[in-house]
């Protein structure tokens, strides 16, 4: 255990600096690749907190300017929702009444 094991990068998925570093060492060069390997940014906050931190770490290790780091795709929904809500969604006229 060293300092990298107690430095939290993604609070939602409980990922440390070591977890992120390991992903970069294994060849990840983009935020999406790190996300697919580690679930970084896939929790309730959807990456709002960790994205800048992972981006900064990638830019440091790969010696790239932060503007050159490829962002993740931003897909709906912006926060986790229940499937029930989607199932009950009415798309026809009259959805305003909610009945």
């Amino acid at each position: 255990m060293d300092d990298r094991d107690t430095t939290i990068i993604c609070r939602c998925e409980d990922l440390t600096l070591r977890d992120v570093q390991r992903a970069i060492d294994s060849g990840c060069k983009t935020l999406d690749e790190i996300k697919r390997l580690t679930r970084c940014g896939m929790g309730p906050c959807q990456g709002r907190t960790c994205r800048p931190l992972v981006s900064a770490q990638l830019s440091r290790v790969l010696k790239m300017h932060p503007s050159e780091i490829t962002m993740t795709r931003f897909r709906p929904p912006t926060k986790p929702i229940k499937l029930k809500a989607l199932a009950l969604l009415k798309t026809e006229a009259g959805d305003e009444d909610h009945d």
């Binding site: 300092d3 990298r4 107690t6 430095t7 939290i8 990068i9 609070r11 600096l17 709002r48 907190t49 960790c50 800048p52 931190l53 770490q57």
Partner: peptide
């Protein structure tokens, strides 16, 4: 905007 977090040991 959302607040930035700093990466340091013990930050949780």
């Amino acid at each position: 905007a959302s607040e930035k977090l700093l990466p340091f040991p013990g930050n949780d």
